[in-house]
Amino acid sequence: MAEPLIEARDLRLALPDLNARPLFGAAPRVEILKGLSFDVARGRVLGIVGESGSGKSTLGRCLVRLLEPTGGTLRFDGDDITHADTRALKRHRRDLQMIFQDPMSSLNPRHSVLRLVEAPMRLYGVANAEDRAREVLERVQLGGAFARRYPHQLSGGQRQRVGIARALALSPRFILADEIVSGLDVSTQAQIIRLLERLVDEMDLTLAFISHDLSVIRRLCHEVIVLRAGEIVEAGPTAEVFAAPKHPYTAELKAAIPLPDPDAGWLSQP
C-alpha cells in the first residue's frame, strides 16, 4: 500500500492560556490537541468533524503548518515537517493550500478575480499565470467575464469558488478546507459540494475537510475522524462510522442532526 501523504503521530499542541495568566510570570499552558494519530491517504478526502472548541480548526492549521505542533510528529510526503522552520517549509508551502470559511474576509476587495487567482502563481513565478488562472476559473465555473469582477460584485457562492480557484491554482498536493460551506444558503451549498465532488474526482485531490455538519461530511469524505476536546474519539471509513458509530459521542452527534422529515418525536428523544 502506498505511503500516506500526511502522517500524524501523537500530534500535540499546547498554547499559553491567556485567560488564566497571572499578573506576573508565564501563563499556564493548555493542551488543545492531545496526541492525535491518523493518516491522510493520497487522493482521498479526510473529514474532520467536531463541535466548537474541539480543536478541529487548530488541527487543520497544524496540518498546513501555520501552527507548529508542540509534540509528536507530522510527516508530509515522508518528510518530517513537525518543527521545520520557514526555510525548510518553503519547498512544501505551495503544496499545502487552504480554502477559508469566509471568502469575503480572505479576498482582497481591491483586486479583481483574475488578479486574486493569479497572485499565488506570480509569487512562485509560474509561467503563463494568466492563462492558467483563466483555466482554473473555468474549472470552478467562473469563466468569461467573471475574471474582471471584484469580490463585492459576487454572490457568496461565487466568492467561495474564487477561494477554491486560488487554492487550486498552484496544483497543490494537499488542500485544507475549513468550514467552507457553512455560511452559505442551502442551494449554494449544494452547488459548492457538487463542485468539490467533481474536482476531487477529476483532479485526484487530497483534501482535509473540516466541518461541524455530519451530513456534508458523509457526502464528501472517504474517511472521517471525530474530535472532541482535542482527542480523536472515533476514526474510520465514513460509511462505516455512520452505519455503526462505536463511540457514544458520534452517535449523539448523529442523532442531533435534524433531517428534513416531520417528526414530532425527535425533540423529545433522549
Binding site: V186, Q189, A190, I193, L214, I217, R219, F242, L259
Partner: peptide, 14 residues
C-alpha cells in the same frame, strides 16, 4: 438541496 447523512447516494440538487 439539503444534504442528509442517511441518503449519501442520493444526488444533491441545487
Amino acid at each position: 438541496a439539503t444534504p442528509r447523512y442517511d441518503r449519501p447516494e442520493e444526488s444533491l440538487m441545487p
